[in-house]
């Protein structure tokens, strides 16, 4: 079998999936003869090691699904992909992903539209394993996810959104892959089901596999993943161990900190402004226009730096950063109190 060299290289470095400087651009027609390139993902870095769940957290429209599709080799024809992707230590070329997908790498797609509307869901889940064993496994998965036995005879339109998510999840767990790429697997599931899914991912990872969890749900990522890559406007601005999210001061990037503060238990403060649209990306740092620490230097090239056990794409030096940030959070607290007082004062 030709499995051996892969297994060897995989033992050499524990990385299951390495993505370096990945960029995805769309070529779009503009006018009759011109075309323009829309960069939707630029210089993205992320690694999934053996035994790990790595979460990519980003807002809606930041390019998360495209990242998943880029890994699976199913980007639209007008998309161009560049950069480096390695799977088990070997380049993940177009030919290779065509052979591996569905076998070594499984995708959990984002929504019900990824199910064939005219095919019963049980048959869709068993698609790659039509035999008895497949049937047994599918029944096992359905009952584990609280899908009644008769669900397999239903069509996707007869299932609720949450049921369809669980069905999609089952498709990935049917196969015995090395890597699962899950694109927003939990919305529509109740807490118990989501926990169950995460526990399954954990069990799957501990068998020497990897999970690449794509989500916009930071609390879910913190509780489920080992490491978190924060995705903003098509790039990773920070990669940090989940444990760093215990305290704001441990985080490296202003956007990550802003996300942290936006979590309910940390004050629920929304970040002002919106993500830049791909057509008018800011010069230099992508977070520049919304960053409270913006300086002129931020207009230059912002390289990825290693800081402690993670990386960050920000020029702020960490120590300084920490101090200023600490001071500011106090200021922010004061300002918040001030605002509250004024609100009630003005109410009269």
């Amino acid at each position: 079998m030709d499995k051996k060299p892969i297994a060897e290289s995989y033992r050499r470095n524990a990385a299951i999936l390495e993505i370096q400087d990945l960029s995805v651009t769309f070529r779009q027609r503009k006018g009759l003869f011109q075309s323009e390139d829309l960069p939707v993902i630029s210089r993205l870095n992320v690694t999934v090691n053996q035994g790990e769940i790595v979460a990519v957290v980003g807002a809606s429209g930041s390019g998360k699904s495209l990242l998943a599709h880029g890994i699976m080799g199913i980007l639209p024809v007008n998309a161009r992909i560049s950069g480096e992707m390695n799977f088990l230590g070997e380049p993940l070329t177009t030919e290779r992903i065509c052979k591996l997908r569905g076998k070594e790498i499984a995708l959990v797609p984002q929504g019900v539209t990824y199910l064939d509307p005219l095919m019963k869901v049980g048959a869709q889940v068993r698609e790659q394993q039509p035999g008895k064993e497949g049937k047994r496994r599918q029944k096992e998965l359905f009952s584990a996810y609280g899908l009644p036995e008769k669900t397999e005879e239903r069509y996707p339109f007869e299932c609720s959104g949450g049921m369809n998510r669980r069905i999609l999840l089952s498709t990935a767990l049917m196969e015995r892959p090395k890597l699962i790429v899950a694109d927003e697997p939990t919305p529509g599931m109740d807490l118990g089901q989501a926990k169950r899914a995460m526990a399954d991912f954990r069990a799957f990872a501990s068998q020497g596999n990897g999970v690449f969890l794509i989500t916009h749900d930071l609390p879910l990522a913190i509780s489920a993943a080992d490491r978190i890559a924060v995705f903003y406007a098509g790039t990773t601005v920070e990669e940090a161990p989940s444990s760093d999210f215990a305290s704001e001061a441990l985080l490296r990037h202003p956007y990550t900190r802003a996300l942290w503060r936006a979590m309910p238990q940390n004050g629920f403060q929304a970040i002002p402004g919106t993500q830049p649209y791909v057509k008018d990306m800011p010069k230099g740092c992508v977070f520049g226009p919304r960053c409270p620490k913006f300086t002129k230097e931020c207009l230059g090239d912002i390289p990825m730096r290693a800081v402690r056990q993670g990386t960050v794409r920000c020029i702020l030096q960490h120590d300084e950063h920490k101090i200023r940030e600490a001071r500011e959070s106090k200021d922010a607290q004061k300002a918040q109190e001030e605002r509250e007082v004024q609100k009630y004062a003005g109410g009269r």
Binding site: H69, M72, I74, C98, K99, L100, R101, G102, K103, A106, L107, P109, G111, T113, Y114, L115, D116, P117, M119, E127, Q128, T171
Partner: peptide, 22 residues
């Protein structure tokens, strides 16, 4: 061009399988 064919490709189905099944 549908999502379900995209997913079928992601599951390793060949062009012919996709035509036949979906």
């Amino acid at each position: 061009e549908s999502d379900y064919v995209l997913f079928a490709r992601a599951r390793g189905e060949s062009r012919w399988e996709i035509v036949r099944r979906h």
